[in-house]
Structures are given as structure tokens and as C-alpha cells.
Design a protein around this nucleic acid. Structure first.
Lengths: 164, 164
DNA sequence: TCCACCGTTCAATAATGACTTAACGAAATA
DNA sequence: TATTTCGTTAAGTCATTATTGAACGGTGGA
């Protein structure tokens, strides 16, 4: 494990974000990249990351793309340079707002749609007698409550966005 | 893949929650268990799950324990029965409140503590000259803003709990 | 006391997906 | 046009972890 991020604090951030990411089911390397950029005053190139973190260039390429899709980093061109540079989006409010727009909101709408589908299928199940009236009643109740919750969250989203 | 959950809607829920879990880095089988319990009017035993989902009893045992630690299911004894029965916690508000108490809140306090540690290390790095004044200034700024954000969230938590 | 029933644990296996090496394609420079 | 410099892609390797089968311990009934 070379690569050597000599600064104690920087290394700590890289490690911490890396572990956080892997706990969330994301690749650890992406977290390390974000940690490195977060602790860097200047934007970094892919090769900078490879040098600092000791990972392959492919990982750096994939990782940066993932992070950009999550709105956690952005591209930052340098005047004379041909290659790509990246910098972290460090403002928590911006990060949250990005996550809401890019991940949460799409997920919520998709989820509500699926809920409707399931409710239709459930009705069919009931008619075919594969579910008793009692079973389907309770099942429907739970699904509807979940749907109302989704609605409520969607309504709250604009306020949350402003609050952060 | 036997096991056969004959109901179309129930099978859909099992699949959906299973996929959701594995996207979140949790075992898919745990998600399947939750989906099954969510769609069941009656509490189920480990053997019920094994029969319905076609998984091993070990998985069912591990899965139920995980779900209980997340507050997503609870134990529900039946009168004459000797074995354990489980039912899903289906109320979204209860689930969220449990997650806030069991996961979010502990994470926030641990995170703030770590932030302080890193700030100390950063100061040491600056004194040793491994970080320039400019670098450390920007780094400190970002960490402090993150800390203020954590504080704000912690203050908001009680309100969020009531809101859901 | 023995037996049957349950849930848990442990070692081994299987499957998932992160990561790397190597080859490729585009763009700029010579 | 040839060459270098980049970033991406694809195939294969490797590591991690979910899952399983089998053995175990405990508890209640016969």
C-alpha cells in the first residue's frame, strides 16, 4: 500500500471517507478519491490520484465518473493544461441538494410507480383467490400507507432543499 | 429457485425489497425476508421463511437478527407455539424514527468526534510544514463548515423525528 | 433420562463486484 | 504523418461477503 499521502490529516480523511463509502455499498476507491480532493486546495488530475492513492488509472477514471454522477465532484479545467482536473464539491448543502435532485427524487417517483403496479397485481391476486380478503386487506393497507408516506416526503422535499 | 411465493404481488415485493437491500450493501436475503413479512398478515416462523423463500435456515436466522437490529421487524409470540415468530414493522414513521435513533444519531456523534481529531492532526501537519499555510487554511475551512453542518443537523433531528 | 424440536454457530463454498492490466481511440504536438 | 499524451473500455483476476450444510447447545415434553 504505497502511494503515500504524507499528511496525517489528509490520510485520515481519505481512510474515513473510503470506509464510509464501502459501508454504503459504494466502491471504497471512490471514497478515497473524494477524500483526497476534499483535502486538496488545488484540483487534481487522474495521475495525481494514481500517485497519491496508489490505485490504477482505470479505477481513478471510473471513480471520478461515479462521483460526478453523484454530484460530489466537478471538473475544473486549468488554463494551459490538456488533461482533466477535478475538485470536490465541499459545501454540504450543495451535496445534499445534488443528492436530492439526482438520487432521492428519481427514486421516489420510480418507487411510487412500482407501488401502483403492485397494487394492481394485488387486486388480481385477490380475484384469483390466491390471497384471502383478509390478507389482501392488510397488505393493501400497508402499501397505501407507504404510498401516502412517499407523497408526504415528495411534498416536503422543496422545504428540505431550502432548509439545508 | 423454488420456494414459490405464489402470489404475484407478494413476489414483486420480495424481489423489490431484496434488490433495494443489495443496492444499499445489505444482504439481499434480509430484504427478501422483510418483503415477505411485509406482505404477510400473520407473523411467520423461520421455517415459514425457509419454505416461502427457498433459503437456508441459517440465512433466515442471520437475516432476522439483522432486521431486528435495524428495527425493521419485531418478534411476535403466538400463544401455544414454542418457536419464534416475526412480523414486519410496516409503519414508515416508526421505521424512520428507529433508523434515526439507531443509526443516524450514533453516526453523527462519532463523526463529529472524528472531525475534531482530524483538525488536531491538521494543526500538527501545518506546524511540521507538510501542509502549507494556504493548503491548511482551505482544508480547515472545509472541515469546519462540515462540522457546522453536523451541528445543524443534530439540532434539526428532534423536529425531523416529529415531522415524519 | 431420553427424545424431538429450534435456533445458532462455524467452516466451507459460491457469487458478487471491485480492481487491475492491457489494448484501444481520440486529440494535440512534432 | 508519426508520436506522444490522455482517458476510456474490456477481459480477467482477486477479494470480499453472502449463503449453505452440518454440527452444536438448550429447552420442553414423553
Amino acid at each position: 500500500m504505497p502511494g503515500i499521502v504524507s499528511s496525517q490529516s489528509r490520510q485520515q480523511v481519505v481512510q474515513t471517507v473510503g470506509r464510509l463509502c464501502q459501508r454504503l455499498g459504494l466502491p471504497r476507491s471512490s471514497g478515497q478519491i473524494y477524500g483526497l480532493l476534499f483535502s486538496s486546495a488545488e484540483p487534481l488530475s487522474l495521475d495525481d490520484m494514481v500517485g497519491a492513492l496508489g490505485m490504477s488509472k482505470a479505477s481513478a477514471s471510473i471513480g471520478t465518473r461515479q462521483l460526478m454522477s453523484w454530484g460530489l465532484i466537478r471538473q475544473a479545467w486549468k488554463p494551459g493544461e490538456r488533461r482533466d482536473f477535478f475538485e470536490a464539491v465541499t459545501d454540504p448543502a450543495t451535496v445534499i441538494q445534488g443528492a436530492l435532485a439526482d438520487v432521492i427524487r428519481p427514486y421516489l417517483t420510480a418507487s411510487r410507480k412500482r407501488l401502483q403496479t403492485i397494487l394492481t397485481e394485488l387486486e388480481a391476486d385477490r380475484e384469483q383467490g390466491v390471497l384471502t380478503d383478509e390478507e389482501s386487506r392488510i397488505f393493501i393497507e400497508r402499501l397505501q400507507r407507504l404510498d401516502r408516506f412517499h407523497t408526504r416526503i415528495q411534498e416536503l422535499l422543496p422545504f428540505i432543499e431550502k432548509m439545508v
